[in-house]
């Protein structure tokens, strides 16, 4: 039996990917090695098969990624045969374009924006495909499928173009670019169901494994050289998994025995934590993500 709602979502995403390939001169797919970008890459493969995916992939590497993610990324790209561009936040730091945060909660997550905007300008990308989903966070719920950004990458929700009947208008002025979101209407549950249905592989951190952890403010962080450990932190070893693969400095681990995609799905249905709950940087304030988005963050 065909999974009808996933099939419908797939139809919609393929339509959007083909619009991006046709309407823009130089699109790029932003690839983090996380499950959403893996699903997007798979959809892109379906949209253009049997030809190659007609745009390169780009990863903005904060240098604080899980090593498992980077290893997976490189293997995945080799298999897919797509071009991968990597740009490093470390380079932006070395060039004094951004300042490394200090202190207990230091994270490179918000620094990525500068590296991303520089890379867009360097390559002249006019469209960036992103794996953002509207169910992730309240301000994402209002994002269009095509989101026009000015020269500074800024998002202005008042300037959003209406998209009746999903007729997508990608016309832009010189210097502007568009962020395009083909999986806008997918939920976390859809993503996992689709990964199961399509038999997609994921980085191992998504599944239960033993890990050395830092317990801080009631949450677990992966133990790594990137986290500034303070006296109140407790070091423990536990069986955990991660629901997202952001930076090691700001991605919380969950105690879990879910070792397969199916286990994860069951556990997600049973528990009800939203996945952004595991992104510590969003908890800085109620409008944290919206503020970062206005400044050009994905």
């Amino acid at each position: 039996m065909k999974n009808q709602h996933l099939y419908d979502l797939e139809n919609e995403s393929i339509y959007i990917l083909r619009e991006v390939a046709s309407q823009f001169k130089k699109p790029v797919l932003l690839f983090s090695g996380g499950k959403d970008s893996i699903v997007m890459a798979h959809l892109a493969r379906k949209a253009f098969y049997p030809s190659r995916i007609p745009f390169p992939f780009m990863h903005v590497d904060t240098g604080h990624n899980f090593p498992e993610t980077i290893e997976f990324r490189d293997a995945f790209m080799k298999e897919l045969g797509a071009d991968l561009i990597v740009r490093y936040v470390q380079d932006s730091i070395d060039q004094n374009k951004v300042q490394e945060e200090t202190g207990k909660y230091a994270s490179r997550n918000s620094l990525q924006t500068v590296t991303l905007l520089d890379a867009i300008e360097e390559h002249g990308f006019d469209a960036c495909l992103g794996g953002a989903r509207r169910d992730e966070e309240k301000s994402r719920a209002k994002e269009r499928i095509f989101s026009v950004r000015d020269d500074f990458g800024q998002w202005d929700y008042k300037r959003q173009r209406p998209e009746p009947f999903q007729l997508l208008n990608g016309r832009i002025q010189f210097g502007e670019n568009v962020r395009a979101f083909p999986i806008s209407n997918w939920t976390e549950e859809d993503i996992w169901s689709y990964i199961l249905q399509e038999g997609l592989e994921l980085p191992s951190v998504y599944f239960a494994h033993n890990r050395k952890l830092i317990k801080r403010d009631g949450q677990y962080l992966a133990h790594s050289e990137f986290v500034n450990i303070v006296d109140s932190d407790e070091i423990e070893e536990r069986t955990v998994r991660f629901r997202t693969v952001g930076d090691m400095t700001c991605t919380a681990a969950f105690l879990s025995d879910a070792a397969t995609v199916e286990d994860v799905l069951k556990e997600n249905v049973a528990s009800k934590h939203s996945e952004r709950g595991a992104r510590i940087d969003d908890k800085r304030s109620e409008s944290a993500l919206e503020d970062r988005k206005k400044g050009g963050y994905f």
């Binding site: 039996m1 999974n3 009808q4 709602h5 419908d8 549950e189 199961l196 199916e262 069951k266 249905v269």
Partner: peptide
């Protein structure tokens, strides 16, 4: 498995 069956017949 049967426990996840509901995920496969939903209408959008």
């Amino acid at each position: 498995s049967n426990s996840l069956k509901s995920l496969y017949k939903m209408e959008l």
